[in-house]
Design a protein around this nucleic acid. Structure first.
Length: 287
DNA sequence: CGATACACCTGTGTGC
DNA sequence: TGCACACAGGTGTATC
């Protein structure tokens, strides 16, 4: 599921419940997700105050006042939902204010304010790790990430430099988190459509003007998707449990067989497979 | 180094 | 109704 817009939406939704609040109790309901949880996880979280929530690529980073940072990734099917915001504090009786745990609720954090944060992940491709805050950027999962697409380091010039001489399909390079961090299957397809670039075009054979257009398209589609609360196809929810609604604004993703969104274009959206993943595009307006 | 295949795991939809 | 199979938003690792 979750690409940058979904993760950013979740991060923002968690802030009211977590930022500045202390974790009163951490319930760890299994040994791990994609990898085993770090040792003594519950003890290391209990009593810690969350100082702030950051995002890097598709990771949520919760800086704790213990000197550690909790690193979260939602994998394909993860969701983090808050319940009981504003509920009166009832020490030892948190459960009265919250729904019963559901299947695949793996980690439950009860904040001292009464809010409950639940990490649910059916497929268990998600990640939860703890790392010294001073060394977060050196974490193996973060160390090789490319620039944030909504930050200053990402630009057409960056794409020019990184695409030069590469024969891989444009889609493959945009999916590569070392080149630009945070894009996934949906937003790569949508950005290539907006830029008029065929997803199979060799990356090194895209001119600078079109890379300018691509950099703009990437920023635009991510920004619009964040404003729409992300895209809900199956599992994804915002932190308050609501669906995102950017899926209604898809122009190509999941639109195989439908007319192209470009006014006057007679093309039909096509689905192909690249590197084992679905690609959606308009063969008429993407070259 | 670059490109591809596979692995991890559960749930859902489709066709027989 | 049951069953087999394809497919799903990600990404580290193995392999050529």
């Amino acid at each position: 599921m979750p690409e940058l817009p979904e993760v950013e939406t979740v991060r923002r939704g968690l802030e009211p419940a977590m930022a500045g609040a202390r974790i009163a109790r951490a319930e760890i309901r299994r040994d791990g997700l994609r990898w085993p949880f770090p040792p003594r996880l519950a003890e290391r979280l209990t009593g810690a105050r969350v100082e702030r929530l950051r995002r890097r690529s598709k990771y949520i980073l919760a800086d704790l006042d213990t000197g550690e940072t909790m690193l979260l990734h939602l994998g394909m099917s993860g969701r983090i939902v808050v319940s009981g915001v504003g509920a009166p504090r009832m020490p030892g009786h948190f459960h009265h204010a919250h729904p019963a745990p559901e299947r695949h609720d793996h980690v439950v954090l009860d904040m001292e304010t009464g809010a409950r944060v639940t990490f649910n992940d059916a497929r268990r491709f998600g990640v939860l790790d703890l790392v010294a805050t001073a060394a977060v950027e050196a974490h193996p999962l973060l160390a090789a990430l490319g620039p944030e697409p909504l930050g200053n380091e990402f630009s057409a010039a960056h794409l020019v430099a990184r695409f030069r001489g590469r024969r891989s399909p444009a889609k493959a390079l945009l999916m590569d988190q070392r080149i630009v961090a945070g894009l996934g299957n949906i937003y790569v397809c949508e950005a290539l459509f907006r830029a008029g670039i065929h997803p199979a075009r060799p990356a090194g054979r895209i001119g600078p003007a079109r890379l300018e257009r691509l950099a703009r398209a990437v920023r635009e589609v991510l920004q619009e998707a964040i404003e729409a609360g992300g895209s809900s196809l199956r599992d994804y929810r915002q932190a308050d449990g609501e669906l995102g609604y950017f899926q209604h604004a898809f122009r190509v993703y999941d639109c195989a067989g439908l007319p192209c969104a470009t006014p006057g274009c007679p093309g039909l959206v096509r689905r192909i497979v690249q590197s084992g993943r679905s690609t959606h595009y308009c063969p008429r307006c993407q070259r």
